[in-house]
Amino acid sequence: MSHIQFRDLSVSYRRPKSDERFLAIDRISLDIERGSFVAVVGSSGCGKSTLLLAAAGLVSLASGRVVIDAAPVTGPGGHAAMVFQDASLLPWRSVLGNVRFGLEMRRWKRDDLTERALRHIRMVGLGDFADYHPHQLSGGMRQRVNIARALAVDPEVLLMDEPFGALDAQTREVMGNELLRIWERDRKTALFVTHDIEEAVFLADKVVVMGRDPGRIKDVVQVDLPRPRSPDMLDSETFVTIRRRLRESLAEDMASLRLVTEGV
């Protein structure tokens, strides 16, 4: 059985300043295998974050369900840990304090908290920065802390919502390689949202393309590149073919979006 199952999942939100609700994602079904790395791409507003929040138990569902490890997700704090885009670190806590924070919230035993946090801080290459505060770190370093914080709680599932979205292209590439290196160690089931197609293909075993209005899955593409991945695969035929297909799927969406905005 798949590790994560989305079954006919719909999530609705209230429109601002009215009681009317709209569907952010509409009857999505998706299976994610244990130990696989799945990337989600799609234009902004198509419900990628919502999908992740549903897996994390952070939104209430309008219909359907999310099942992780054969158990329906009913609330936050269970199997999944989440890495957000920038600015989700507590600014008044040090790097160590932030990584400890996740462990404290998950009620890990006190005595090995610091030890465990430090081990994960070293793992993401920030061993010398444990006492720094977030405002003293670069964007890339902050995201390393975010990743360390999520992995420290030893989640079954790692959910990442555009974790490198605020980084420059070069740092992004470094972080992608780094993430894969860390991920290869214990291959936790990973769900990774990005708007960067190359990043998606480079990292993932499977790329899910979402479309909008309402949010739904348009395409699922298997990435048959061997692991460990290396930057020279970016020029391989497989890579280029997949990238083209993804670009086309996304372009349709962009085209319809343009029609909508021009029509108004």
Partner: peptide
Amino acid sequence: DPRLVRAAQSFGAGRLAIFTH
């Protein structure tokens, strides 16, 4: 910051923990 509240929630923080932390 709602982003901080959400991050705390994602680690299972309840209302009291969000308040104090």
